[in-house]
Nucleic acid binder design. Structure first.
Lengths: 154, 154
DNA sequence: CTCTGTGCAAACACTTTGCAGCTAA
DNA sequence: TTAGCTGCAAAGTGTTTGCACAGAG
């Protein structure tokens, strides 16, 4: 319980920033938004709306899945979260906004974060920069994870 | 009409390879598969199942959307196509198997190909290579395309 | 007090599945 | 001939929308 409380502090520290972001975007600070954001920021597993819904319900038992869904989309819009690149499955969200990369297992759909310094500053080709505004750039790997490899090795 | 015929030849040249791939995977060569593959290989726009369905129907008016769907998944499995990384929208497919990168507009969902030599050989970090089998590696940009930027400039 | 945000339920879009008949090999 | 493929229809899954009420500012 003690360690949980410590963890809690670490992500609750993000809350003032988040509140500021909301206000800047003209959004109201509601318990639902707080709770969704808090659980997303805490999560390490790129949860789907439904996964988060289950977690948030422990804090706000009456919240609806729709609200979680809407809130997540809102968070993505104001840049407090981002939608992870998948391949047309259910939407997955990411509250970690620091630079990192994703590996996605095509079998179990697990998304694994990794960080590799050289990828921090991927140069955007001039041809792209001339025509488009690049908001997010990432290196994305797809393949088979260790667990699935074992499963299929039989 | 003449130029169309020429274009047609260029992608029909891929057909023998494709047939070989099918046979290698133990798949039958059916008109539907041929047609779906042909239209996908011809397409430059990362079509969804539905987009392809409309095109293929011009060749095989009786094909069903389900078949297009199933065929596309099959193609992805045998490595004759791939599912483009999106962000939880409808599945989008890509028949261009040569190395290239994607820029995706978060507004209009358009996916734009680009090619940048330095991205040809992205090094896979050892930490990843140790645990996972990487099948596809790509640099993925997200942002606002020129058309949408104009729209929102008003 | 006002107007945004929420919860509920229905609508929706896309995908998947089961099965009978068809067809490539 | 016969396994695998297709078309149809139905079910499933996840997401979006409309509306009345609740609650933040």
């Amino acid at each position: 319980m003690k360690s949980q409380k410590k963890k809690l502090r670490s992500y609750t520290e993000k809350m003032p920033d988040f509140k500021a972001k909301c206000r800047a975007a003209g959004l109201r600070i509601t318990p639902q938004r707080m709770a969704v954001y808090q659980e997303l920021a805490k999560s390490k597993e790129h949860p789907s709306a439904d996964m988060l819904y289950r977690k948030v319900r422990k804090i706000l038992p009456n919240i609806s899945l729709d609200t979680v869904n809407r809130t997540l989309l809102t968070l993505a819009e104001i840049g407090a979260a981002c939608i992870v690149e998948g391949s047309g499955d259910v939407k997955r969200f990411d509250g970690q906004l620091n630079n990192h990369q994703h590996f996605r297992c095509i079998k179990c759909k697990r998304i694994i974060d990794f960080y590799h310094k050289p990828f921090d500053n991927i140069p955007v080709p001039k041809s792209i920069n001339k025509k488009f505004v690049v908001l997010r750039k990432t290196v994305y790997f797809e393949g088979i994870c260790n667990l699935c490899a074992e499963k299929y090795a039989s």
